[in-house]
């Protein structure tokens, strides 16, 4: 602490990162938080743009966009396109972004049948009728993974991906290395 003052090093330009959860459960975001105290190291290297962590509503120019969840409604598609337009690199994080995941389990059912059962006919569920407020985004007839709509640069599978895998991938990317996950970090479950 008493060391002579040195000229302060030039501030490292932080990479800008945006994150979002589309048709996901926020479990992948929980797994990001699960990198624990390494979050502090991460914050030395990056700053967050649009993200549930910042509550910024729209994405500006970013270096990395992290997408959790697949596409189950029209708004998901708009948000995904906003991210692709603004982010140099898009990372698909978790099973739902990569293959549709749990929400895609409705894909072999007819959408109208699903809505009618949930909102009208099933006696233990709500009976208010199928919501049709114009503010609500329209559901897609099938749930899709994000690579069917935009180019995706990196994929990290898992439900959710383990925190260690997220840390490994982010540190590899930040260091300019091709991400490589060893045994135990690559998981589909």
């Amino acid at each position: 602490m008493n060391a002579p003052m040195k000229a302060a090093p030039a501030p490292v330009k932080k990479l800008r990162v945006a994150t979002t959860s589309l048709a996901g459960c926020f479990g992948c975001h929980m797994s990001i938080l699960d990198i624990d105290e390494r979050l502090l190291k991460l914050l030395d290297l990056v700053e967050f743009d649009r993200s549930p962590l910042t509550d910024i509503k729209h994405c500006g120019p970013c270096d990395l966009g992290i997408i959790e969840g697949g596409l189950c409604n029209a708004e998901n598609v708009h948000v995904l396109r906003e991210f692709r337009k603004n982010c140099k690199i898009i990372l698909a994080l978790g099973a739902c972004a990569i293959n549709g995941g749990l929400p895609a389990q409705r894909n072999h059912l007819d959408l109208r049948d699903v809505l009618e059962e949930v909102y009208q006919t099933e006696h233990l569920l709500g009976r208010g009728g199928i919501p049709n407020d114009p503010e609500l985004p329209l559901p897609l007839s099938k749930v899709h993974p994000i690579h069917e709509v935009v180019k995706v640069d990196y994929f990290l599978p898992g439900c959710p991906p383990p925190a260690d895998a997220i840390w490994k991938l982010l540190t590899d990317l930040l260091a300019g290395r091709t991400p490589a996950l060893g045994h135990g970090l690559l998981h589909y479950d």
Partner: peptide
């Protein structure tokens, strides 16, 4: 090291 399905899903 299969990181993604790459192709469009069939959802049969």
């Amino acid at each position: 090291k299969m990181m993604s399905p790459h192709f469009d899903m069939f959802y049969p």
